[in-house]
């Protein structure tokens, strides 16, 4: 076997091995957060104010974790319950772009400063993206 290839396998294995305890911890934490916070509870938190709703939507999306499909289903249900599109948009955008649950892992691997700044920016952007999307849709 090519020596460089062997080295790349060893290097990759070491990286994966280091990640394992963090990975197991993150998955356990995601499971617990999903079990503790009932999905029906979120609908009660929204108001009718465009800015406040987008902040609440982005905030909820930030602390929630899991497959984006779950956020689409939840978002679709929120819309049916009369929650504003701007709040739902901020919610589904923040769901994948902000990762509060994954923050410890991101900090540990990519650096604390990078992880905090990136997640804070993503949260702000979830609000901007939501308001801009709904504004443009209003013009079409």
């Amino acid at each position: 076997m090519d020596q460089n290839f062997k080295q790349s396998i060893i290097k990759s294995w070491r990286a994966i091995y280091k990640l394992l305890p963090i990975l197991v911890g993150i998955i356990l934490l995601i499971g617990l957060v999903n079990a503790i916070i009932p999905k029906t509870y979120y609908a009660k938190l929204f108001s009718k104010n465009i800015f406040l709703d987008s902040i609440i939507g982005g905030g909820l999306g930030s602390i929630m974790a899991g497959n984006p499909v779950t956020s689409y289903i939840l978002g679709g249900e929120f819309l049916k319950q009369g929650i504003s599109l701007v709040a739902v948009t901020a919610f589904i955008v923040a769901w994948v772009t902000v990762g509060m649950v994954q923050l410890p892992a991101e900090s540990l691997i990519l650096g604390k400063r990078f992880a905090i700044i990136r997640n804070l920016l993503s949260f702000v952007f979830s609000i901007i993206v939501a308001i801009t999307t709904v504004f443009i849709l209003g013009l079409i």
Partner: peptide, 16 residues
């Protein structure tokens, strides 16, 4: 750095 991951895992188990 190599122990932090284990500390995190232990913290999650305590939370459980």
């Amino acid at each position: 750095q190599s122990y932090t991951g284990y500390y995190f895992l232990i913290a999650v188990v305590i939370f459980y």
